[in-house]
Design a binder for these strands. Structure first.
Lengths: 209, 209, 209, 209
DNA sequence: GATGAATGAGAATTCATTCAT
DNA sequence: TATGAATGAATTCTCATTCAT
């Protein structure tokens, strides 16, 4: 049952309206793949979307508004990752499960690279909307991760902190695959860094203090 | 014996010129503490520095040029960190050394928060100058860290990867103290995250496969 | 069936848009009558045209672009001159025809002094667009003139060269009436110089080697 | 006996000062060969001349001032042309003399192309200094030419007008050799146009009404 | 639902020019 | 004699945004 969507003028959006709105978002994402979002202008978008600039303002407040709309649409399948964390991890399947977890997060990035990158850049610059959104959409993951740590390695005194740190690293590694740059590192193969994360997390979980 | 510095017009820079150039940089950094660098304009800078906008262009190409100059000046005391890594780490002093290492990196950020944050934001957005600069100025650290891992834990098959991942996490943790946000986490005390990193690195180094 | 014209933003130009574009061109020409085109600025034009400077850039790339548009519009009635050259010239009506030809060219200049002067100045300075345009729009004339020379004076061995030289002189004389300066000469009455050109051309045509 | 030259500050110019002034002029002429003089700036000149911009104003008021100084220096050997006109022209040596005259004018342009082109462009744009200078420096030539016409062809009723027209054409042909463009004509060999002028002038002089 | 037209506002940039040294 | 330093004043140009149709 689809919600009733309205444009910024308060009108109910029909098929045509929804299509136009969609096209603006699609074009925006397409443009972000090429150029930096830093200099993405309303004019660029409307030119590419082949609508008049006045039309833009029927559906969005400004550029940031489209960007946020794009980001919001993206991360819906976070569930795949949570599913992995919901299964039973034990001594025998540990490495396998850890790898599944890491890979599922990588896949999320693979699918939504543009949106997630955008989310991070804006959040890193302190943009509250994006900051809050990032927190909300990732909280479940590192909380679940924290619980896993506690569960498998009850001796770990600081499970939440470790979870956050691991997750931070995971996020970066996943994020930087494309441009191949990790915090000053030269290009590294995906495999090497993924393995390192897997190693690290496994170590944390296996280790009995 | 001081080098002969020239401004963009090819004139030798005397005392007064150097002072003006300095003031522009200082003001830029001061402005970055308050507002986002995203909308920092030449006009903002020259107003604050109390020089005409024409003067700005005698010393810098554009805003990015000042930013880069600021960043370049910052990381000079990277040596403190390398020094820690140059000492002897052994089973007895391990935790202590790891903590020193982490703390020294935190301190680097404490001193140069604005510049380093800037460097990372630009690099993350794919700006080549900053990307390259970050690589060059951090390479030594994670290379040394990689060697330490090999040295203390020869069983570790992927020391470089692990070093990069650890360093990436360290960089984020250090970076995000201020805004209190780690990859979507809610505000966390410095201590907790620092401890987590220390734990993690210690674990990697202690663990005998 | 009028063509669909577009402005620089790709919008179809309606009545209002065409009017604005026109007004900018008209004002530009008016301003050129007073002051040198050398220091004609976009600001001058938009002030006089009573539009914002942003509006200017909707219709023209820069000042040169308006200038060229003005020049292009001007020389439409080149046909009057070609018509004279298309009639039968013979021994009896020769002087009369020559005079008609010269006068028709003078009249062209009288009507489009600003535009033609502009065209020449830019072309003389090597501006390719204007150079090319001048070539194209005058070629027919001096080619026809060359043929006339051959026709009436078959003994002339270098009809094209002579035609070009005569035409060059004609162009200058016509051009310089206003400012009264011909290649360093003090002000000369129109009549005197026109007579001289008529004499010269008649001489060329009459003379049987 | 060299005149005592003063710079704009009223100081007598010594060797060094004269050298600097010279260098500025030389550089200006060199720059004019490449680029249009339209956008020649003081900064360009001083950069190329390797002096400070302040130095420029010791010797010249502004760019036009240098340009005029350059132009003034150029046409000194106008005498060669006047010499040709001062010899005896008669029926037998006529074509030969005409050709000498035309060639000598071409040579003047060959040697001083940049300066003469500059002079013409400025004069054509109505710049009074250059206009006046052009008049003065060419008057003798077309006056002498007018007398020659009267002398050799007393029947010619409008010798001054014809002289001016011929001279105007001569000037253009000489001027346009380089850029190969004569008032809209496509590139023509020097020879062809020179021959045409020679023909024309000979015709005027030979013809007995 | 869409768009042609227009603009205010501000940013970047460049120059000619001056002055103290 | 020369120049480092600075600037006022334009000018170009671009954008986000609005509004009447």
């Amino acid at each position: 049952m689809p919600e009733e969507l309205h444009n910024l003028q308060g009108q109910k959006m029909g098929r045509k309206g929804r299509e136009t709105r969609r096209r603006i978002m699609d074009v925006t994402l397409a443009l972000l793949q090429d150029s930096s979002y830093k200099d993405l202008t309303v004019l660029d978008v409307v030119y590419e979307a082949d609508v008049s600039n006045a039309t833009f303002y029927i559906y969005f407040e400004d550029i940031e508004d489209v960007l946020f709309a794009c980001v919001q649409e993206a991360a819906l399948d976070m569930n795949a990752i949570l599913d992995v964390l919901a299964t039973d991890w034990n001594r025998r399947n540990l490495r396998q499960k850890v790898r599944e977890f890491v890979e599922s997060y990588n896949q999320l990035w693979e699918k939504n690279r543009v949106e997630l990158r955008l989310r991070n850049l804006e959040a890193d610059q302190g943009n509250p909307r994006f900051l809050h959104y990032r927190t909300e959409s990732t909280r479940k993951i590192y909380e679940a991760l924290g619980r896993k740590i506690t569960e498998l390695n009850p001796g770990q005194r600081n499970p939440d902190g470790v979870a956050i740190v691991i997750f931070a690293a995971l996020d970066i590694i996943a994020a930087k695959h494309e441009i191949g740059i990790v915090s000053g590192a030269t290009r590294q193969t995906r495999k090497k860094l993924t393995d390192a994360i897997v190693d690290l997390l496994s170590l944390v979980l296996e280790n009995r203090a």
